[in-house]
Design a protein around this nucleic acid. Structure first.
Lengths: 344, 344
DNA sequence: CCGGTGGATGTAGACGATTACATGAACCTC
DNA sequence: GAGGTTCATGTAATCGTCTACATCCACCGG
């Protein structure tokens, strides 16, 4: 590997001058700079970021720790963060925890070892071990899920409780009564939050809450499948008329089960899903979705991190984005609408 | 930041001993090691990976450069790579090129700066600038798309030409004649390869090839939508009876257009899609998919990299995985099948 | 002509770890 | 008990870069 010394020798200057050229120090005479660049090019010199970061005590890198790289919601969040990072000159190290606290702890630790300049995380739980990072003054931004309130970290959330509530309100208005909720692991904030919204809507409408209709499962297709199987397989129970599903991967599982049981989404069982996966529009009739501003969440998180890096002292901020339920169709789905849409 | 020196002082040993403890050198007496660990814990010491990598001239990190993080095929590839990396003790830096050669070049450059120990890439073209990395002896593994054959890099591919050919064979056997192909950018290997398979099938069946039926577009929903619009909007042309679509994101766009034009997938226009996105099974009737072993591709790539790190000298290898088209239903879809599946 | 000023460049000591080699103590053997 | 061996630990150089400070030189005003 060629080093700064090799370049210095060839260009007949000191290593300091070479370094100045590569850090764009204006004090170097243009002619000298040109000679250095020429030598570097000839030798194929590339600065060693490791050495630079070690010396400067900071690396222009952020760690982005997400719960599941296969979740389209989170990949969109990633895009948002990425765009902000890139435009501000930071690289991104992406870590995938798979919702496992142990993996998460390992990544938090390695973020510290790599001396990244900031960490953005969708924590697996409110008690994720970020204390040590904060104690060192390493900025942490939490996304989509809050951490313990005493930790004072910048936070970006989506108001999914309110969205869940509106969705269930609408189901009730349409006359549904046996309304179920399939959500993620209890420990995950957004999973519980969506159940809260669901409960609020029922309470406010004066409807009873049947705990049998609330299912916590893994935040993936398999989880959705399992929960739907239990929900729909209950002997002697009143038939389920609507289901609020907490994410699009679970929805795939739920819809598969409906299909296997000969139930038609929207017609026999109304389905509302968090996340607007593009395929939801392809079903006939299309199922309802709750749009979450994922890209914007990532962007907002990136900007909070930039702000904090610029002015470390300021108090922690929380940004709340809202999820939206598209305006209701005037014509509620009926069988004849289905046929015409499908056959026509 | 506490350093190895602080720990050494507190534990009353030299920095060498502390280092030995953290690199699990067995030559340290257990009692001493314990004292060191205790001191480290008390001070909250975390080794500085930057310094370690600088000294050891290698960082236990791989760069994974993928074309599109929102492509489910590639996120599955990522999972495969990740699992191999993790079990071998490597960290993964994930970079997203968005199919843009400039971004790709920037990431290749920064991989070099970070002194990663290997690079895995889905190149945006066969001429991606990996020469310099190879010249330095930095292992490069190319995935899903080959690089110039003179470069001698390890390669993992999926035989999508053959899969495309089988899919079109089947369409022909079912009596389709106006068969179209919607694929990705011409520059991308897999995009062109799928067209080749398509052509081969038509040629072999003695059918004419209509260049108007072949559309190159962006590898995303928008691209699929645009290509389908052009394809189906041609005035006075014979109606398209089948479409081979080169990935699942494009398929969403294509299916939207069909829907808008009142055409029923499978019935009016047979659709076969590369990648088995989970939602494809939810359509009625379900559309055909070509299963690509994405996770296995990632795994294979990771293993090739491990092998190469262990024995750098060996000649480059190419692993070819096969894509599979699920066995054909005995009963070709007909309207009555549709109704029973949908209503039943 | 002299002292001062400012601009371009060089010198050398960090940054935080690893590791070849040196050291010294303990133990063994004859 | 001298010499050899082994084991645990210490010393100090090194990885590649940045940067505070020193140096040198040209130029300027009086």
């Amino acid at each position: 590997m060629t080093t700064i010394r090799d370049v210095a020798r060839l260009a007949e200057v000191s290593t300091a001058t070479v370094s100045r050229v590569f850090t764009s120090d204006p004090a170097v005479r243009p002619a000298t700079a040109e000679r250095v660049r020429e030598a570097a090019k000839q030798l194929g010199y590339v600065p060693n970021t490791l050495a630079r970061s070690l010396r400067q005590q900071t690396s222009a890198t952020w760690a982005l720790i997400i719960a599941d790289i296969e979740n389209p919601f989170l990949t969109q969040v990633t895009r948002g963060v990425e765009d902000v990072a890139q435009s501000a000159g930071y690289s991104l190290v992406l870590c995938n925890t798979d919702e496992q606290p142990e993996k998460e702890a390992a990544y938090l630790n390695s973020a510290e070892q790599y001396r990244v300049s900031g960490v953005l995380i969708t924590p697996t739980s409110a008690t994720s071990p970020v204390d040590q990072l904060l104690a060192r003054g390493l900025p942490v931004i939490t996304m989509d899920r809050p951490l313990r309130p005493d930790l004072a970290v910048d936070t970006v959330l989506i108001d999914s409780r309110r969205a869940a509530r509106s969705a269930v309100d609408r189901m009730i208005a349409r006359g549904r009564r046996q309304i179920a909720c399939i959500t993620g692991p209890r420990r995950v904030f957004t999973a519980s939050e969506r159940v809260l919204g669901y409960r609020e809507a029922l309470l406010e409408a004066g409807l009873p809450i049947d705990e049998q209709l609330i299912h916590y499962a893994a935040f993936n297709e398999q989880g959705g499948r399992q929960a739907a199987d239990e929900l729909l397989g209950r002997a002697g129970a009143a038939p389920v008329e609507a289901i609020l599903v907490a994410n699009s991967m679970m929805a795939v599982g739920v819809l598969q089960v409906l299909r296997e049981r000969g139930l038609r989404p929207s017609l026999d069982v109304e389905i509302v899903v968090f996340d607007d996966a593009p395929w939801t529009g392809l079903l006939t009739p299309a199922i309802s979705v709750i749009h979450q501003p994922a890209y914007e969440l990532g962007q907002a998180a990136g900007k909070l991190l930039l702000d904090r890096l610029r002015s470390p002292g300021q108090p922690a901020r929380t940004v709340m984005l809202s999820a939206t339920l598209p305006p209701e169709d005037d014509t509620p789905p009926r069988d004849d609408v289905l046929s015409s849409a499908l056959l026509g």
